[in-house]
Computed example of a mutant assay.
Amino acid sequence: MIADRRLGPGDLIGTMDDFRDRSGYGRATISEAARLLNDRGTVEIRPGRGGGLFVARSSPIVRLRHTLLTVRKMPATVADAIAVREALEPLIAADAARHRTKQDISDLRKLLTQLKRATSSTDRFMRANWALHERIAEITPNHLAKAVYLGMTQCISDLSAHADSDDAGRTEDHLRLRLDVHTELVEAIVSGDLARTAAAVERHHAPS
C-alpha cells in the first residue's frame, strides 16, 4: 500500500479498522502485524483519535546508514540503543579526557592504528570502531555510565551487520572520513582538552 499509493514519511496508511475491513482478520492479528511493522521501522503506530498506521519518519536508525550498518531485526530497539549511547558519549569522552593514563593513551593509539588498517573492509572497520569506543568507555570512573554505554554498544553490535556497498570507492572514502573523525576524537582525549573533546564528539555524531 505504501508503494502503490506512493506514500511518504508521516503519511497515513490506514486505521486499524481499515485493515480489519480490508483483510478480514481479527483485532489481535492486525495489532500483532502492526507491532512487527513498527519494530522493523516501516510504520509508526499512533493511538487515539486521529491515530492509525503512518509511514515511519526518519529516526536515529538513519545513523546506521551513516556508519554503513544495516539492521537485522528489532530496528526500534537499535534506534533506542543508539539514542542512549549518543546521549552518554559527551560524558564518556569528557571523563576519558580527564582521567586517561599513559596506559590508556597507549591502548587508544594502538586501537586507532588497527582502525587505520581496516579501511579496506567495512566489517573489519566497524569491529575496530566498536573496540575503540569500548576502550574509551573503560576509562570513565562512572561505573553506571560505563555499564549502560557498553550494554548499548553490545546491543547495536548484536542486532546489526555491515552493509555492503555497490560503490567500493565511495565506501572507502566514507571509511577514511570516519577514520579522520575518530583520529581527532582520540587526539582530543589524549590532549586532555575538554572543549576540543566536546567538539570531536559533536563531529562524531554529525551525518557524513
Rank of each mutant, 00 (worst) to 15 (best):
L7R: 02
Y25K: 14
V78N: 06
M126D: 07
A56C: 12
H174D: 13
E202D: 14
F125A: 08
R178Q: 06
I156R: 10
R170M: 10
T77I: 12
V186T: 07
T183F: 02
L88G: 01
L112W: 08
R85P: 00
H205C: 01
L111S: 06
L12H: 14
L108H: 05
G10P: 06
D167P: 10
E44A: 11
N142H: 15
A79G: 15
A83N: 05
S58T: 12
A195F: 03
N142Y: 09
V181K: 05
A168L: 08
R196M: 09
E134N: 11
D123Q: 14
L185Q: 04
L12C: 11
V84F: 05
P47I: 00
L111F: 08
I82Y: 07
D123R: 15
R135V: 02
G151K: 07
N142M: 12
R178T: 00
G10Q: 06
G48P: 04
I136Q: 06
R117N: 07
D104N: 02
R22V: 15
E138P: 01
A161F: 06
Q103Y: 01
L64F: 03
R22W: 15
A56S: 09
L159Y: 15
R170D: 10
P141M: 02
D95H: 12
V78A: 05
L12T: 08
A83M: 00
A188C: 05
Y25E: 12
D95F: 07
A81W: 01
Q114K: 15
A96R: 08
A34I: 10
R65M: 11
L194R: 14
